[in-house]
Nucleic acid binder design. Structure first.
Length: 424
RNA sequence: GGAGGGGUGCCGGAGCGGUCGAACGGGACGGUCUCGAAAACCGUUGUCCCCUUUGGGGACCGAGGGUUCGAAUCCCUCCCCCUCCGCCA
């Protein structure tokens, strides 16, 4: 959420953000409601002030056992007026707040202008593209031989795109989760959290999935509960409605969680195998930082995640997203894409964002500056560290041998407990 | 699931219709004292909103309604926490 005062003072800037992010523009409406609100508050407060005077007077007269009938009648009239004004005000505030939740964050810090993902900018790549002296297979063909996951059985249990991992596939998932968590938590860099994977409405508003993405999430029968679409939701909301100390910052959390996405309307697009799923596993990283440090923190977060891909020796590139590709809450985002030679595509395995104070304002997460002074909103950042299924695709396709077996990258083999996945 | 007890400021904890933005204690901060520190003593200690902004006014005691001239205090709904019993991985 943006500061209402900022919107009033910089309408053009906000309108532009709506435009480049392809969000509806409610700025004029919001400003109009805000002006109405101020007028109404002024009226209401002056009436209330009057009413308070009457109340004090009644209290005084009551002690002297005077007749209160007349003055009470008068006070009642004022009280009724206050109530009318209050109702009107409530309506206006509700409308304003609903619209405020729909205004996106503003792109910042040299985010390239653009109209589609074609305008994203590759800022660097790491590793080397593997050359094969045989015809490479994609992860689905490899899975035919390896039997690591079993889509039909997953579909029987739940539905399509709810994969079931079996035997060595299940072990591979577990090994990856452990590798990532161990790396991120070493020397206490990130604090490991195992959160609930169901979140309430307040949490989803806080991290800014709601109201926009309601249809992309699984909603439980109980109206106010959703399956989390990302571990970011519980992690970011841990400090909702809290006043932190400046000395608490930065706070770094990481968590493994399953993630649930309806992917409504995305059928037909990258729907083969493990690329796009309704349920997948992910290790998520989140940072709460001092506003002065958030741009530096974004670079650090990016490096922390890159390190995972380096440990796995995967060929990847960093994509700086242009304005059109930025998510609703983000001020600046890097995507990390890993090369999948069998699929012949770059796969997005992580998205790393600085939301500045956008989520913090929604959540009311502030800190008190050391030197006294007014509380300030923290800045929050999030990044996948990383999404497991696409990493599995990358590992299978990059580390495949001629016969279809997979050589496990060295760092991972310690976790997996073997150096090779043989065909069955 | 059943029966009770609670949610108050940075923390603990009083208040149970007006004099309460809230006693008292702790913490933190400032000062006195000290070579310095501790102790002791004195003082300070919220957030948000509106306006004609060195000033004035309003709101906030889990959330939302209600009663009343007036609600932290009374009534209703919801949320959360604790204790006991039952059930259970």
């Amino acid at each position: 959420m943006l500061d209402i005062k900022f919107i009033v003072e910089n309408p053009q800037l906000v309108k532009n953000a709506c435009k480049v992010k392809n969000e509806p523009d409610y700025v004029d409406e919001i400003i109009e409601l805000q002006e109405k609100r101020c007028t109404l508050i002024a009226k209401r407060d002056s009436m209330r002030s009057k009413l308070n005077d009457f109340s004090k007077e009644i209290s005084r007269l009551a002690q002297q056992k005077e007749d209160l009938t007349e003055i009470k009648t008068h006070a009642k009239e004022i009280s009724d007026t206050v109530k009318v004004l209050e109702n009107e005000l409530k309506g206006i505030e509700e409308k304003r707040d609903l619209l405020l939740l729909k205004v996106p964050n503003i792109p910042r810090e040299n985010v390239p202008e653009g109209t589609s993902d074609k305008d994203n900018v590759i800022i660097r790549q790491w590793g080397v593209q593997k050359q094969f002296d045989f015809k490479v297979k994609d992860h689905l063909q490899l899975n035919e031989m390896l039997k690591l996951f079993d889509p039909p059985t997953g579909a029987k249990l739940t539905g399509s795109f709810f994969p079931l991992y079996t035997d060595r596939g299940a072990r591979l998932v577990r090994a990856l989760i452990n590798l990532m968590l161990d790396y991120h938590t070493h020397e206490g860099k990130y604090i490991e959290i195992l959160p609930p994977i169901i979140a309430n409405t307040e949490s989803l508003i806080g991290s800014a999935q709601l109201p926009k993405l309601e249809d992309d999430m699984y909603k439980l029968n109980r109206e106010e509960y959703f399956l989390i679409p990302t571990g970011e939701v519980p992690l970011i909301n841990m400090h909702r409605n809290e006043m932190l100390k400046e000395s608490d910052l930065p706070i770094n959390y990481c968590a493994y969680t399953p993630c649930f996405r309806r992917e409504a309307g995305s059928y037909g697009k990258e729907t083969k195998g493990l690329i796009r799923l309704h349920q997948f596993n992910k290790v998520e990283l989140v940072k709460f930082v001092h506003p002065d440090n958030s741009w530096k923190a974004l670079e650090e977060l990016l490096e922390d995640i890159e390190k995972i891909l380096q440990l796995l020796e995967l060929f990847y590139r960093i994509n700086l997203l242009c304005t059109a590709d930025l998510t609703f809450a983000s001020a600046k985002t890097y995507d990390i894409e890993v090369w999948a030679p069998g699929t012949g595509k770059w796969l997005e395995v992580s998205s790393v964002s600085n939301t500045t104070d956008f989520q913090a304002r929604r959540m009311n997460t502030r800190f008190r500056p050391k030197n006294g002074g007014k509380p300030q909103y923290v800045h929050t950042l999030n990044g996948s560290g990383t999404a497991i299924p696409r990493i599995i695709i990358a590992i299978l396709e990059n580390y495949q041998n001629n016969d279809g077996s997979i050589t496990i990258p060295e760092t991972l083999s310690k976790y997996y407990g073997d150096k090779l996945i043989e065909i069955q």
